[in-house]
Amino acid sequence: MARHAPWALVVLLSGAFVLFGADFDMTYVIPRRLLRLGAMLVGGVCVAWSAITFQTLTGNRLLTPAVMGYEALYLLLQALLVLLLGSAGVVLLGAQGNVLLAASVMFGYSWVLHRWLLREGQHNLYFLLLVGLVLTLLLGSLTQFVQLKISPGEFSLLQGVSQTSFNRVQGAQLLVSALLVGALALLNRNQLNTLDVLALGRDQARSLGVDYPRVLRQQLALIAALVAISTSLLGPTAFMGVLVANLAYRLATSYRHRLTLALGSALAIVVFLIAQLLVEHLFNYKTTVGLLINLLCGGYFLVLLTRQRSHR
């Protein structure tokens, strides 16, 4: 029962989001909202999928890929684009260009990072996390520096892309993202059982015949791709993955990725929908979706920390 509730909620909330106060305006309001809904669906899947996979690889339920510095890199890239091209240039580059650029930069980052850190057959994920931490701080300082250099008008443009929001999605971009996610899902279909085994830990997975280095490489590349898609579609989502993944584990009462990934995706979409509905109808745009999600998920993260069940 609990397994289907989130999907029912997705349908219900989507209906409310698309139709509420739209007066069946098929020419503008509803198509616009459908586009945003599409962004939530695709983005939600990416957020949940990347977070749950990352938690399985690290064997830790308090982490999201954001700690590896992906989102910090994305923000830096956006700030640099505004600084170097100006607002006109960013508009010229267009959403597609921006997405492709962001995706390739993040992919390159992930490739260099893993290439450099995982050579010599050493796969110490904790070390990887510390490096991610340093890079996050470093990229953050660089971004702040760039932000100081740009004009207030350009800053507000930058502010638009550096927070979770569904408003900048464009049709073609959404289509490409959805196709990409679909292709990745197809490619990854056979890996779900392997992920289940990886959750037992590196050594146990290896002694059960998993080619650990290869799977780790594949899954980290997959995570980079998913994070690139979701950040360029919706902006950074920071803790959201932690919230979604942990709720999914709780509701699924199973370790199987087949279940947790599906549930997590539904939950992410629900969170997006609720935040958007609240901003539109309760707060009257006095706050932003990004801030609301950050607060909600950040708060949950702190609660989760205090509730950590200690083993034995």
Binding site: N60, L62, L63, V67, Y126, L129, L130, G132, L133, T136, L137, A238, F239, L291, N294, L295, G298, G299, F301, L302, L305
Partner: peptide
């Protein structure tokens, strides 16, 4: 071992 990572996320909440 995760304390610094958690601290960074905690800082993220305050910053939000």
């Amino acid at each position: 071992v995760l304390v610094p990572v958690i601290g960074l996320m905690y800082g993220g909440v305050l910053s939000a």
